[in-house]
Design a protein around this nucleic acid. Sequence first.
DNA 1: GAAAATACATAAGATTCCGATGTATTGTAC
DNA 2: GTACAATACATCGGAATCTTATGTATTTTC
Lengths: 113, 113
Amino acid sequence: MIYSTELIKGTLKTIVLKLLADNKRMYGYEITQRVKELTFDKIQISEGALYPTLHALESEGLLVTEVEYIGKRVRKYYSLSPSGKSKSKEKLSELADFIETMKLLLDLKVKTA
Amino acid sequence: MIYSTELIKGTLKTIVLKLLADNKRMYGYEITQRVKELTFDKIQISEGALYPTLHALESEGLLVTEVEYIGKRVRKYYSLSPSGKSKSKEKLSELADFIETMKLLLDLKVKTA
DNA sequence: GAAAATACATAAGATTCCGATGTATTGTAC
DNA sequence: GTACAATACATCGGAATCTTATGTATTTTC
């Protein structure tokens, strides 16, 4: 199944914050690949969506960056700032709660972990 | 908790289709109230979002309408067309699958029903 | 040495929703 | 009896978010 794009809207920031909460630091391309991998290709984040989001989170002070060179190629690592860490928790519990609500509302059968 | 609006984006059509699948026919205002009620005020659909969505679903041939008068006040009932019924099932299973994927991705603990 | 993968980025346009505004009727509380 | 809240429809400007396309450049793989 391939998700209609509208469904994914609004979750990108949360996904990014969660991955960075788990992984200390990641670079953009790595994030797209990790998500693709973790979701068995069901969610593919486009670069046109990801980079503006990363820049927005950075300018909100939630992410900090460090640039490294792999050979001649630039690589920009992102990691959570202190406020990014708390924001990450906030966003995750919001999403968890939202999913509960959607389950109730839509009577979805969701398997247990 | 009040959900950040971006989270709700993309689920409105599915919510509407599900409610109509369960309720035979409903009118716009009724839908906003039902959702508010079922989600304990966590999701409040604005009229500026709902009416354009209803019109869009109608012009896609998924919904059919019948107008009634309650006194002098007009009331527009929406119900699922045959294609709306199958679309409703489609959208619901897509959302269920998406929620599963998000759980995996974000490691959310979701309670069993 | 050609193609695919890696790695960044921007920009135009579409979609979707928010917030405000508008109109009108009906019910309720004082 | 009248002001206010609720009911019920609707549209519109603007914001936010994502898609698709495009651009640049390096590195790996076949």
